[in-house]
Amino acid sequence: MTALFINSFTLICLLIALSRDRAKTKRALIIALKSFFNIFPTILLIIILIGLLLGFVPQSQISKIVGEQASFWGILVVAFLGAILHIPSLISFPLAAALLKSGATVTSVAVFITTLTMIGMVTLPLEVRELGKKMALLRNGISFLIAIIIGIIMGVIL
């Protein structure tokens, strides 16, 4: 159902693009094809890891770290992991879904995705160089707090 919606949305965008500019649309499709093959090995990799995670790691273990039994420290650890890890956000969603399925809470999953995408330790030096220390550190620091607040709110309402 969701897949149907996503594919129809893409189809509509594609048709609009085609009616506006054929050559540009062709270029977009070539880019799409290339990035598909670029990301495919990584996607397979993460799916295998998810399979192993769900098959071998007992739910009670996952739940202890990021589940109901997790303390505020658990959330902090997840937030920190998300901030330093450099995995493409595209593959973080299936991973998040797998964790959620095996007992992680909405809060820890939301915190993880949010710090993962918003904060980039790897790109921080570049951000400092381009935008200055003050702005870069403020943005990343406040994003860290925001991610935790968003996660807690989501845990309460979902």
Partner: peptide, 26 residues
Amino acid sequence: ALWKFFSEMILVLPAVMILMGLFSVF
């Protein structure tokens, strides 16, 4: 688990890549 996640991914991945391509050009 492998099959479930793989099929869910492959259903949307082409569409997602096309969207990315379109946005990067337009």
